[in-house]
Structure formats: structure tokens, C-alpha cells
Amino acid sequence: MASTTTRTSGYVREKYTPPIIHSFTLPDHSSVRTTEFDGVIGVDLPSLSIHFEHSQRSLRTSPHGIVNDDRAVSSPAVVMKPKEPSELTIADVWISLYAFWIHRSQLEVHPLILADSTSLKNIDEVLTYLTHSGLAFVPPDAQSPHELLIIRASFWQGAGAPTHLHWLRTPIPSPSLSLLNPFPFTQSFTRSEHVLTTHPLRPPKPAPGSVIYSRYIHQVGEHLTLTHIDASNPDHFASYAKWQNSDRVNVGWREKGPDDKHRVFLANRLADKHIMGFIVAWNGELAGYGEMTWAKEDLMGTYVGGLGDYDQGTHLLIGEEKFRGRQRFTAVMTSMKHACFLRDPRTEVVVGEPRADLPIVPMLIAYLPQELNREFELPHKRGVYFALRRERFFQAAMLD
């Protein structure tokens, strides 16, 4: 049966330009103030200020070894320096780069020169942090090791992020337990009515009520959090039940029913190692419910096949009418995918499978840099197979 869903022309990333004086909250809810006058970006931290100032020096920003010299592009560098001579902590540098990439979000790389040791007293320590974390590298045309190219995609992948400032708030395994490695590979197996597959043993989920992900959404001017749903929390349960019982949400989810049905559903979700439900909140106000799944042992993995051991999937409903709309929808969808890519660096693809006849399908094409693979049959619906690839996400997703 062919679908009559209207298609759009595809994804176009929006440009965000912050105001001249701009404040935002970090993942731990502390605040940062930035300014931009005449192209100079200032970042005001509690104990010092950092500036990104103009430089006469240019560095090549076209990929070295790929683009021929006759069409290569070079760009003027900025000099990163404390307003007053001082040392910078890792957190100072990371927060400053966060502010910089919000002001230059359309660029993939940018030349950066570290100020001399008179101004930046621990310049070698900062250089080691930037290059060893992958936030920057010394390009072939650099004239000193302090001339760098910083990389936007590396920043948003969490490179060098201090644990207390990371968007992923409850990583598994905890950095305090396993600093160097992701959760190890151990062969596991799932056998159920619709799934029969080997897959890696999945890590324990964080405790219900744990904040999974936290990020300020500049386009909206509010702070977004994703929290592991806690069915024993009266606010979580009442909101979830209300949303599922609304006629609008029921069109897509088909979970309308009495409280007992909702309690069983959430208990099953909590017990299922491959899926984690979460509450979406804006500035602490509950807005919707979503899920992250390990795709290989999900229905998706059974009926489309070909998914990797660490590929993931997502589902979402926005229950509160006041939190609907294009910008908020894009922010929540993008944040879910971001959380998936961050929680395991081995995840190459995050998939989706909405019902093919839902009006949300064109929005998923227009507002996320994902591929529409095909329509396919599931036991309970005809779905649309979306695939969002890691490289494409960090290149083009609206993370500002």
C-alpha cells in the first residue's frame, strides 16, 4: 500500500545569530555572559574574562590533502587571550569555546591562535588540552604550535568536556568508575515474540529521576532537560498518563487507558534493558515523554535489519500544547539524538520509525539532517525508516 504522505524538499539548517550581549546557562545551570562588538567575542566567567580578538594571520580552512591549492580557502585567525594576564583552567577554555561556537555556529573549523605566555601563563597546558582532546589540531600551514584549527563537530561530540559541564549528566559507566573506556563488549542475547538476536550486553540505566541530558536552547531562550522517568514521582506519572490519554497523542502512540495500564507500561519499560523512557522539561516545566532504544534488540532491528551493535533509536511525544512548535520540536528531537550519540561513542546511526501516515513525517525530513530510507511494514503499523548518521549529525544539526 503506497503512502500519500506529503514530502518536503529536505533539511536546511537554520542560522542562529546571538544578540550582542547574550547570557546562557551551562549544562550544570551556571550562567555565562558573552558579548560581541566589532567581531571581538568576549566571554565573562566568574573570575576572569576571555577574548577572541582579530589577527592579521590567516590559516587554510579547506581540508588539507583534499582541496587543490587553486580553490583552497583561508580565513583570518582569532587570538584567544585572557583580558588580564592569567592561567586558564580546562573549564575556562571549554566554556569559552562553547561561547565561541554559539557566535560562529555556521562554520565547521576556525583558525585560532593562543596568546603568548605573557598573557596566557599556562599556554602549553592549554595547547596540550586542545590538541590531545581533539578540540583542535595544528594544521600543516601553521608557523608555530600555537596556531590551531578548532573543530565545531569535535566540540559538540563532547571532546574535552569537563564531567561537571557535560551535556550528558549521568553517563554510564560513571567517569568515577571507568574514566578511560565505554561500557565493555559482552555478548548477550534477546529472545521474544518479535526479536531473536545477539547483541552487546547493555549497561544499567541510571536511576529513575536521574537527569540524563541538559542543554540551553539559544533559539528558544530556555533550558531543556531529559530526565529518566520515575513512575513513583506523582508529577511524572500524572503528566505521562494525561498525555497518553489525550486524543492528539493517542493518534500516534495508541496507549490511551486507565492508570493501571500506564503503570504496567512504565514498569515494563523500566525492566527492559534495551529501552529508557524520559521526561522532557523546559526550565523545569514538564512538556513531554520520549524513549531511547538500543536498535538491534528493538522491533526496528528485527524488521529492517542491518543495524549495528550500538545503533540506537528514539520515540517522542510532546504532551503540553504550550511546548509545541517548530523550534521547540527541533530542539527536543535534536537533543534526543545528541544524547544517543554522546552516551556511546560507538553509535554510528540513530534511527526512527514513525507511522507513515502521521503529519509529523514531513517535519522529521525538514528539521533533522537525517535520511529517509524507505517505508516498511511492522506488525502494528506501516513505518517510515529514518537514519541519522553520526558524521552528518555533528556536521549539520541545529545545536544552538
Results as ranks from 00 to 15, higher is better:
residue 161 A to M: 12
residue 161 A to V: 00
residue 161 A to R: 08
residue 162 P to K: 09
residue 162 P to N: 03
residue 162 P to H: 00
residue 162 P to L: 07
residue 163 T to C: 10
residue 163 T to H: 04
residue 163 T to I: 14
residue 163 T to D: 09
residue 164 H to T: 13
residue 164 H to C: 08
residue 165 L to T: 07
residue 166 H to C: 03
residue 166 H to A: 14
residue 167 W to C: 12
residue 167 W to A: 11
residue 167 W to S: 11
residue 167 W to R: 15
residue 168 L to I: 04
residue 168 L to G: 03
residue 169 R to Q: 14
residue 169 R to V: 05
residue 169 R to G: 05
residue 170 T to H: 03
residue 170 T to L: 07
residue 170 T to F: 01
residue 170 T to D: 01
residue 171 P to V: 05
residue 171 P to C: 12
residue 171 P to H: 06
residue 171 P to Y: 13
residue 171 P to F: 01
residue 171 P to A: 12
residue 171 P to S: 04
residue 171 P to Q: 08
residue 172 I to T: 15
residue 172 I to C: 12
residue 172 I to S: 11
residue 173 P to W: 02
residue 173 P to G: 00
residue 173 P to A: 04
residue 173 P to R: 09
residue 174 S to K: 08
residue 174 S to I: 04
residue 175 P to G: 00
residue 176 S to P: 03
residue 176 S to F: 10
residue 177 L to G: 01
residue 177 L to Y: 12
residue 177 L to C: 03
residue 177 L to Q: 14
residue 178 S to V: 05
residue 178 S to R: 13
residue 178 S to W: 06
residue 178 S to I: 13
residue 178 S to L: 11
residue 178 S to Q: 11
residue 178 S to D: 13
residue 179 L to F: 10
residue 179 L to S: 13
residue 181 N to C: 09
residue 181 N to K: 02
residue 181 N to M: 01
residue 181 N to R: 00
residue 182 P to F: 04
residue 183 F to I: 03
residue 183 F to L: 10
residue 184 P to I: 05
residue 184 P to Y: 09
residue 184 P to K: 11
residue 184 P to G: 02
residue 185 F to P: 03
residue 185 F to A: 09
residue 186 T to R: 15
residue 186 T to K: 15
residue 187 Q to K: 15
residue 187 Q to P: 08
residue 187 Q to A: 15
residue 188 S to Q: 02
residue 188 S to W: 14
residue 188 S to C: 00
residue 188 S to Y: 07
residue 189 F to C: 01
residue 189 F to V: 04
residue 189 F to G: 11
residue 190 T to H: 01
residue 190 T to K: 12
residue 190 T to Y: 12
residue 191 R to D: 09
residue 191 R to P: 09
residue 191 R to H: 12
residue 192 S to H: 02
residue 192 S to G: 14
residue 193 E to C: 03
residue 193 E to V: 03
residue 194 H to N: 13
residue 194 H to I: 02
residue 195 V to T: 10
residue 195 V to I: 15
residue 195 V to K: 04
residue 195 V to W: 04
residue 196 L to K: 03
residue 196 L to R: 11
residue 196 L to Y: 05
residue 197 T to S: 00
residue 198 T to G: 14
residue 199 H to G: 06
residue 199 H to K: 09
residue 200 P to E: 09
residue 200 P to Y: 07
residue 200 P to Q: 03
residue 201 L to R: 15
residue 201 L to F: 10
residue 202 R to L: 15
residue 202 R to M: 10
residue 202 R to D: 04
residue 202 R to N: 11
residue 203 P to C: 01
residue 203 P to F: 06
residue 204 P to C: 10
residue 205 K to Q: 10
residue 206 P to T: 02
residue 206 P to F: 07
residue 206 P to A: 02
residue 206 P to M: 08
residue 207 A to I: 13
residue 208 P to A: 01
residue 208 P to F: 07
residue 208 P to G: 11
